[in-house]
Simulated assay, not measured.
Amino acid sequence: MKRMTFGLAFAAAIGSGLMAGLFFVFSVTIMSALGKLPAAAGIAAMQSINTTILSPLFLTAFMGTALLCVVLAIVAMLNWSGPASGWLVTGALLYVAGTFLVTIVFNVPMNDALASAAPDSGEAANLWTRYLSVWTGWNHVRAVTSTAALGAFIQALRLL
């Protein structure tokens, strides 16, 4: 059981790290760069990013990590006396709530709204201004929580 838990925690750490890096780059570079473009160009670029990112590899890393976290949380709670259990549950909660659910509840609906906007319209320009602020704010949450999940999983791995 310990070897399986270690493998699951290692994979969750890798997945959390991949997502942390992706969201970090969006927060510190990509969104700022898109915000410097004329609204129509920024919207068109983000629309392209939002369709391109939905690849099997991204979805496997993003959703697979969420699934690993659920399994790890269950395993950790079943073995609550284990030295790594608290860290495993913490990492799982950070990723599932702060990364996965924030994406589903906040970022994806904004992406859907942007997808239906005609980049050259005045309505789209207003949407883009709000999108840059609100979407990026929630992305900061995803960057921080996926990084914190990675840290929790690393701590758990030290104790396994």
Rank of each mutant, 00 (worst) to 15 (best):
M4G: 00
T5H: 06
T5A: 10
G7H: 06
G7K: 05
L8I: 03
A9E: 02
A12W: 02
I14D: 05
G15Q: 14
S16R: 13
S16H: 12
L18M: 11
G21F: 04
L22R: 00
F23R: 12
F24R: 03
F26I: 04
S32G: 13
K36H: 06
K36M: 10
K36Q: 10
L37T: 03
P38D: 06
P38I: 00
A41Y: 07
G42Y: 07
I43A: 09
A45P: 03
S48L: 07
S48Y: 11
I49L: 14
T52S: 12
I53N: 13
I53H: 15
S55G: 09
P56K: 02
F58C: 01
L59A: 06
L59R: 08
T60K: 03
A61R: 02
T65I: 14
L67T: 08
L68W: 08
L68Y: 05
C69H: 12
V70G: 10
V70A: 13
V70C: 07
V71I: 14
V71L: 05
L72W: 13
A73Q: 04
A73P: 05
M77I: 13
L78Y: 07
S81Q: 12
P83T: 07
A84P: 01
A84R: 03
S85L: 02
S85V: 02
L88M: 14
V89W: 03
V89C: 05
L93M: 15
Y95C: 06
V96W: 15
V96R: 10
T99E: 10
T99N: 12
F100W: 12
T103D: 12
I104H: 12
V105A: 09
F106M: 05
N107S: 12
V108F: 05
D112L: 07
A113G: 09
L114F: 11
A117I: 00
D120H: 13
S121E: 01
E123K: 01
E123C: 00
A124F: 06
N126H: 04
N126W: 04
L127N: 08
T129V: 13
T129R: 15
R130L: 09
W135Q: 01
T136D: 08
T136M: 05
H140V: 15
V141A: 13
R142D: 04
V144R: 15
T145S: 10
T145M: 13
T147K: 09
L150W: 11
A152V: 11
F153P: 05
I154C: 10
I154E: 01
A156M: 10
L159E: 10
L159H: 04
